[in-house]
Design a protein around this nucleic acid. Sequence first.
DNA 1: TAGCTCTTCGG
DNA 2: CGAAGAGCT
Length: 660
Amino acid sequence: MGRSSHVLGFGAVIAVFVWAPEEEGHYYPGRVSRWWLKQSLAHLDSSLKSLGTSLVTKRSTDSISSLLEVVKATGATQLFFNHLYDPISLVRDHRAKEILTAQGVSVRSFNADLLYEPWEVNDDEGRPFTTFSAFWEKCLSMPYDPEAPLLPPKRIISGDVSRCRSDNLVFDDESEKGSNALLARAWSPGWSNADKALTTFVNGPLLEYSQNRRKADSATTSFLSPHLHFGEVSVRKVFHFVRIKQVLWANEGNKAGDESVNLFLKSIGLREYSRYMSFNHPHSHERPLLAHLRYFPWVVDEGYFKAWRQGRTGYPLVHAGMRELWATGWLHDRIRVVVSSFFVKVLQLPWRWGMKYFWDTLLDADLESDALGWQYISGTLPDGREFDRIDNPQFVGYKCDPHGEYVRRWLPELARLPTEWIHHPWNAPESVLEAAGIELGSNYPLPIVEIDSAKVRLEQALSQMWQNEAAARAAIENGMEEGHGDSADSPIAFPQAMQMEMEHEPVRNNPVIVTVPRYEDQMVPSMTSSLFRADDEENSVDIRNSVLESRAEVPTDVNVAENTRRDTLDQAVMQTARTNATPHFNFAVGRRNSEDSTAESSSSIRERDGGVVPIWSPSSTNYSDQYVGDDNGIGTSSSYLQRHPQSHQLMNWQRLSQTG
DNA sequence: TAGCTCTTCGG
DNA sequence: CGAAGAGCT
């Protein structure tokens, strides 16, 4: 230990990535997501090499055993990892901590994914918030700021990995390579590219964010979501940079800039809130948060589902969005709302199906964010959209794509249709259609469901839902047990078609069989360079150089915490073992730096961060622990909720707080 | 100024 | 589409 303390007051480090996607259950990452992960890890490994170490990779079906294996092979005495808040990770990480601690390894975990830990943000009575705006207001007025981002290390002392074999990780197969090649033209994964994307955004489009954020052509979004998802840039760094800009603009009296920052931060806040909700309601990715939605009679129609995926809905905006998603793995936030709202309200398909499809196809697929998004759209949150509201793609189309450019880009078959009819071709006069070469029902579909009949059907479904709910209530009052095997309780299975499209195939070099979801049902127009952002035309950044360029001074006078027995600390293992979010690579060293230098101060806030792995009982499916607001206590203005006060009841699962 | 219409915008 | 706010009388 002594010999390495001159660098960072810290021992040798081994960075580990364990690829154990089977642990994610249904949520095996999709093709584009795996593509990103592969590039990101290569980038990370390259950076680590330039700092003096490299990434140890393990293919596993049991990440904890794999970690133990690495610990044993390297003689590591400490393990560091960052918190994740999805239910699978929470349970697994808690177990990892228990098992490794029992093996004599000192385990510490940290917050690197959020501005504040979910348990830090509570209302005046100490209870978690149930609406976003209250939550976010609180976050912005916390008595202490989110911790400042840390600088990358200058150098890492590598642990001895000579007896620790790395597995060759395979993230794609031959059939995927062709499609993946296109992705590289549009996106540059990796932490230094994430830094660039952040800088570019903050110095450019951020100023006009409030003006442009509604446009379907996504030129003004930050494009940070995949980088954030994979842990390539920390949300604290984003927050920090953006706030600095805001202070600057506020001082200049730049009202538009100030407003833009607030709106952009709100979207950062939604990402925070998604973790917060996932932590407080661990089943939020599979069950509606408002109890009565369990009784909604979803239309379990795989034909509709397929039509939605293939863009055969007859609504140009929905169609265009689905094509963009399939072709690029990306969709502007507004269009996500359009296609998912259509899915839930017009087709009335079970939202989990749509969420799963997003998971399989989005480059920034993120369980918590997507769950929050779909629940918001589905009206299953106290502050989400009213369930009985249907977004009409026609009206929304003229708002976010007023000239029809977005639709024409993705639907060349409609290219010659005048703007006046581009979002509702079914109303266009025959002569116009003819001139545009469109024959509805033949070379362009008629609406699969008319909006008006969707409204009627939705009303009926809602009254059915309330009847079902009342019946269930009555059954309970009559002394029947609230059975958890209740059909309304168990999520609708993923469609047969989706499962049939799954292929079981061994992937070369992987010691296990993986299940790869496939959808081969979408035709897309050939891609042109105009689809890609101009600034990404030159890809393949020289990673080594960018590491050198962005390397910064780091403090060298780091204390080692009292509770770390420095004499026995020869090596530490850093686990970066998530498909879900790969922690920023400088975490193990930098984080310690920050933690340790403050560990002796009296700040209870800091102390809270050091070793807490949040858990709750995974087996608990106890619905009785619900949040019950009084009739207007929950702060919603939704008339829908006022009509249905029981909507205030959120399902909650008992949370056991535990200090490590 | 209360009250009305028009506009905007949605977690 | 509807609620909230701006703007007008």
